[in-house]
Amino acid sequence: MSSDPHQYVISGLGGEVFENTEVKVSHCYQCGKCSAGCPLSEEMDYPPSMIMRMLQTGNPELEEKVLRSFSIWVCLTCEMCYARCPMSIDIPKMMDFLREKAIEEKKANPKAKQIISFHKSFLDSVKYTGKMYEIGFYADYKTRTLKILDDMLLVPPMIKRGKLSIIPELIKDRSGIASIFRKTIKKNKT
């Protein structure tokens, strides 16, 4: 690799985080400001600063817990932590990486099934229509999660208000979109 003696070396997941996102976990001094401002931290199993701490240890067991955590899925990427971090640590970027990695290693938290299904149904819709076709997406999502009844009460009023299109508006260059998906996310079957 690089011969720069000052390059950031940390093994394990923290090292991977750095290689993929330039986020140095050692840069965090555990002030907890991210956790204090995170709107979801009380729903997390480990608040953001704890995730940072677990990665700092380099302990494989704790790293495993990070990948299997619910935190990384309930994170909304609202960017509040990053905006207020005194060390300018891009936690949202790190969370993206951890999510991708958790899926890749099939370690996603079971509680996150609905969230992940949402993302996958969303992307499926984009893959096939180029856009987010809401009815198709809802149907797909509901099949994935079997949460058939949730939100069904919203559908008639939405249709009444003209908020749902029955027929998808298809993109013209569908093969182009399909090719983008093939070249990027193909490893992770959606």
């Binding site: 400001k33 204090a36 401002g37």
Partner: peptide, 23 residues
């Protein structure tokens, strides 16, 4: 560290975290 302070009903709401209690 304190993430935010804002005023509400004449009180100042201070939002922080206790990092010694798992943040």
């Amino acid at each position: 560290r304190v993430s935010r302070v804002y005023e509400k009903n004449g009180k100042l709401i201070v939002k922080g975290a206790d990092t010694l209690l798992g943040a």
